[in-house]
């Protein structure tokens, strides 16, 4: 007897529709993701005109912390919750390739990354009167996707290593808090601290984002930061995929 299997494109469309509906229904939680970057844009206004900081510094920090929030709070918690509730198990017994489940989730997060970047650009333009070149905006838009991938991969590693959704949530919050602290104090003029922070996942993403906003300032250190960012992404994603289990049972 011949059994027809649905087209992958149709399955993908259905999953995306469900995941975008979920994203929309969680819009309050998603607004919280944008809150910290907005606070930075508003409260660091004075830094925009300071020579030692500047507009790229403010925008890159705001976007970086938003990316951390998306990867660690949004993505990680939604995966942990749905895994615990058996949502993935129900999908896994359906005739769809497994990669479509995660691809759909990641595409939704990608949308959030793009939305965050646009919101920060608009807020920076509107409230801090930051004017960057068009190429700077476009380049940063692409780099924010690269940067966002690090934190999505880190989130994947967390949700892979830890099964309990509450523990995933608390661990993700702790790491998020650590990144905020790094963002706030990392630029202090303490030599060894600054060096360490520069090469953390936070520092490398911030570096490439800042250089993206001002492409003329791209140098070898930025290239190293980009390579390290990609390296972090590969390592975290590999561990996350290796550790990940579809069910907590």
């Amino acid at each position: 007897m011949e059994i027809a299997i649905p087209k992958t494109s149709e399955v993908m469309k259905a999953l995306l529709k469900a995941d975008y509906t979920t994203l929309w229904r969680n819009r309050r939680a998603n607004l919280m993701v944008l809150l910290v970057p907005m606070i930075i844009v508003f409260s660091w206004k004075s830094m925009v005109s300071m020579p030692m900081f500047g507009p790229a510094f403010v925008l890159s920090n705001a976007i970086t912390l938003g990316l951390v929030a998306i990867g660690l709070m949004g993505y990680t918690n939604s995966i942990a919750r749905d895994r615990d509730k058996g949502v993935f198990q129900r999908l896994r017994v359906s005739p769809l390739p497994l990669w479509t489940i995660m691809t759909s989730r990641l595409l939704v997060q990608l949308t959030m990354i793009m939305l965050l970047t646009i919101v920060v650009f608009v807020a920076g333009y509107q409230f801090d009167h930051i004017r960057m070149s068009l190429s700077g905006y476009l380049f940063t838009f692409l780099i924010s996707i690269v940067g966002g991938a690090v934190y999505l991969a880190l989130g994947q590693a967390i949700v892979g290593r830890i099964q309990n959704p509450e523990t995933v949530n608390s661990s993700a919050r702790l790491i998020y808090f650590a990144f905020i602290v790094v963002g706030m104090f990392g630029e202090l003029n303490v030599a060894y601290l600054k060096d360490i922070v520069t090469w953390t996942p936070y520092g490398t993403v911030k570096t490439i984002l800042a250089a993206g906003l001002e492409p003329s300032k791209w140098n070898s250190q930025t290239t190293n930061a980009l390579l390290l960012t990609l390296g972090y992404t590969i390592v975290f994603a590999t561990l996350g995929i290796k550790w990940f289990k579809w069910s907590t049972k």
């Binding site: 399955v11 999953l15 979920t22 229904r25």
Partner: peptide, 27 residues
């Protein structure tokens, strides 16, 4: 067709949306 012991659906979706999702998944 499988009914699992402990199963759930995306809690943000309503009954009609869940049925539409799974109908589409089965083509």
């Amino acid at each position: 067709g499988v009914q699992l012991q402990a199963t759930s659906f995306q809690p943000e979706l309503n009954v009609a949306e869940i049925l539409e999702l799974y109908a589409s998944i089965y083509g």
